[in-house]
Design a protein around this nucleic acid. Structure first.
Lengths: 192, 192
DNA sequence: ACCTGAACACCGTTCAAGT
DNA sequence: ACCTGAACACCGTTCAAGT
């Protein structure tokens, strides 16, 4: 039985890991820094070294979330390099899947963006998300498979629609089959 | 200077009123039952008589919110009795306006719906909201101005899109002009 | 029926002190 | 540089007691 060393060594990463799980199981409201510290076996003051306050932890979770979401959407979309509509549809599915699988995290992500003085890393992360959608939209418009010439406007519309479908899905107001149908309907409306 | 009577007489209504204001000014996280009681000039235990717990207060706020939102959308939509597309557009504008003017309340509303064991009144209220959208969608489809024959599917899609645009708008990611454009683009895609 | 006020268990945050 | 542990101010919730 080696004694616990004074330095945890990996506390920041462990706190983020545990926080993501706690978020998934019990939601934001139940996410407590003190409980996290307890589970990690450190004193309640320890997290302070890595996260100045609760919001800093949530911001870090938001950044990781956007990175994972963007990567997932990019991967899904690029599996259809020739069919931009199919790529966008796959990307939208990835968003909705994230929304149902990590509903609380997605809430944390968007509310981190919404803060008046949102952290720079958070803004960068959400920017990366929009850039991912925009790239697919731009390709679709350029190839003539997507209507509209204003890329930004189309990016916002498609992002907003994905967001809305994801919200309803995670609220349990739609079945997975309905989600698929909604995504198809939405994108069909904007296909050239 | 008459002394404060033992019975407040109107505590439930006052708490709801103050809570809505507090929500608008400082968000859900800052909404405290104790502070509300303090402001109303009653003891911290007093709210208990009217709301068993914090969630019961939020549920009541959600119900009121859905009622107000539905009424506003219905009013906006019915100002265009002959043009169902214009009616739906006006209704969508009302939603987005609510989303920007009462962002925190709208969050409370949807998260009340999302609770595992959501209160019956909350479910009834959100049902009323969907019924409002559905009536407009059904009229649009029946008159041939809106594509699609599946009313439920179209209702979900339009609701989800409004929700998404409202979320982006309240997050400050879009300007009012962009919101108008997004709503027009969305509905244009579904017009026959 | 409605409200008071003490009590309890939990927070987030701060900060001197230890390693 | 990282962590401990006491201290502080704040919660939500419970409940006997008062009107």
């Amino acid at each position: 039985m080696t004694e616990r060393p004074f330095h945890h060594g990996n506390l920041r990463a462990e706190l983020l890991e545990r926080a993501e799980i706690m978020l998934r199981q019990r939601g934001v409201d139940e996410l407590s820094l003190r409980e996290l510290a307890r589970e990690a076996g450190v004193s309640h003051g320890a997290p302070r070294t890595h996260f100045v306050d609760r919001r800093a932890l949530l911001d870090a979770l938001a950044v990781r979330g956007f990175e994972r979401l963007s990567a997932s959407m990019q991967a899904s979309g690029s599996r259809e390099p020739d069919d931009h509509i199919a790529g966008l549809t796959a990307s939208a599915h990835a968003y909705v899947e994230f929304a149902t699988g990590d509903a609380a995290l997605l809430e944390v992500m968007w509310s981190a963006v919404k803060e008046k003085d949102a952290a720079a890393e958070v803004l960068a992360a959400v920017g990366q998300f929009f850039a991912t959608v925009e790239a697919q939209v731009a390709a679709g418009i350029a190839s003539g498979s997507l209507i509209g010439h204003d890329v930004e406007r189309m990016t916002l519309l498609i992002s907003a629609t994905m967001h809305g479908i994801g919200a309803f899905a995670s609220a349990g107001r739609t079945t997975p089959e309905q989600n698929d149908a909604l995504i198809d309907d939405a994108i069909a409306g904007w296909s050239a």
